[in-house]
């Protein structure tokens, strides 16, 4: 389980020249829609869309009741049971479909909560500065350094049979620090920009400056932080279910793995019991990570995979575009000729 370290997040002030150039104000709006044109982001969004769809319709389209036992005990995948069955004859495909809702709800609720907290704390700290900044920064650094997952595990285990909502709240309240830190850094640099200084000099209200001058330019970072938190929240929820802390009465993919592990699915060779849930998690994580790559590349275009790095020149050679050695497409042969006539179609003599 990892958080994908995005380049935006890697960049913190104090590393001077490496501070990310964020989109120029004003241009931000026009470019917002071009983000979707990024292939990675588009792929991620489509997959995420499919997951959201299943989160909504999953419980209705599931062929069986995920709790219903049947005589088909530990069946391998078949036409009747696409992903096979459990030791009680429950249909794993239905469990996955029904579980999608819990996973998505917890991921999104925790993501929204953490994002709101990180904006409140990060932007306030960065904008107001002074003692408030010191205090809020120290608070977010503390939350950043304390290992979040063990803390979540302990807090959740105290509450008997924690519900999805509670799990989402606990995760949200413990995972805002990363976003807050990045937002604070970026707000700090935005605050010194001319247009913000100008707005302040003309006596604009603080909340208006934050809302209309600062926040629009933090959109990409906020989005990236949100996606990162959703990844973390989904992983944490599944982990909690897997080790049997959160409520086992409702289905999510971690619950499936919990039963698979508890019933020695591995030893019995019932690979279908844990493979689909794991792949579902990995695919969701990949989709979210792809969205984040898209945001990263959108914010700092240098990161885009170099489109064409090999070029075929007119005389059939292949040259490579790279830093430090500019390719020459058509060098004029014959070195020491005295001012030879070169064709120049657009120059009139």
């Amino acid at each position: 389980m990892t958080i994908s370290p995005s380049s935006i997040e890697q960049v913190i002030p104090g590393q001077g020249a490496m501070a990310q150039p964020s989109a120029a104000p004003g241009r931000a709006k026009r470019r917002q829609f071009r983000f979707i044109a990024n292939a990675k982001a588009a792929t991620g969004l489509v997959i995420l869309g499919i997951y959201c769809l299943f989160a909504v319709i999953g419980p209705w389209v599931a062929p069986y009741n995920p709790d219903a036992r049947s005589g088909d005990v530990l069946q391998a995948p078949s036409l009747r049971h696409w992903f096979g069955t459990t030791h009680l004859g429950q249909d794993i495909f239905s469990q996955i479909l029904v579980g999608a809702r819990s996973v998505m709800v917890v991921g999104l609720v925790a993501g929204v909560l953490a994002t709101v907290l990180s904006i409140l704390i990060g932007v306030t700290a960065g904008y107001i500065g002074g003692a408030a900044d010191e205090g809020l920064s120290a608070l977010s650094n503390v939350f950043l350094v304390i290992p979040a997952l063990p803390l979540i595990i302990i807090v959740t285990s105290i509450v008997e049979q924690a519900s999805d909502t509670l799990v989402a709240l606990i995760i949200g309240c413990t995972s805002w620090a990363w976003g807050a830190r990045v937002l604070r850094a970026q707000t700090l640099s935005l605050r010194r920009r001319d247009y913000v200084e100008a707005a302040r000099a003309t006596g604009e209200r603080t909340w208006r400056i934050i809302l209309f001058e600062i926040l629009p330019n933090l959109t990409a970072i906020i989005a990236s932080g949100f996606v990162g938190t959703v990844i973390f929240a989904v992983m944490s929820e599944i982990t909690l279910a897997f080790i049997g802390i959160s409520s086992i009465s409702s289905w999510n993919w971690g619950t499936i793995l919990f039963w698979a592990q508890g019933q020695q699915a591995l030893a019995q060779g019932a690979w279908w019991w844990f493979v689909p849930a794991g792949l579902a998690i990995a695919l969701l994580g990949t989709a979210l990570a792809l969205i984040n790559f898209g945001i990263d590349e959108f914010v700092s275009p240098r990161l885009r995979s170099a489109g064409r790095t090999r070029i075929r020149t007119a005389d059939g050679r292949t040259v490579r575009m790279r830093v430090g050695f500019t390719p020459v497409l058509a060098p004029t042969p014959s070195v020491p000729t005295p001012r030879a006539a070169t064709t120049r179609e657009d120059v009139v003599r």
Partner: peptide, 20 residues
Amino acid sequence: PATTFLSSIPYFWLGLVAIA
């Protein structure tokens, strides 16, 4: 992209697969 996929897999699940 392949490494992205690998990093999206929960550690514990990868462990289960490795054992299997």
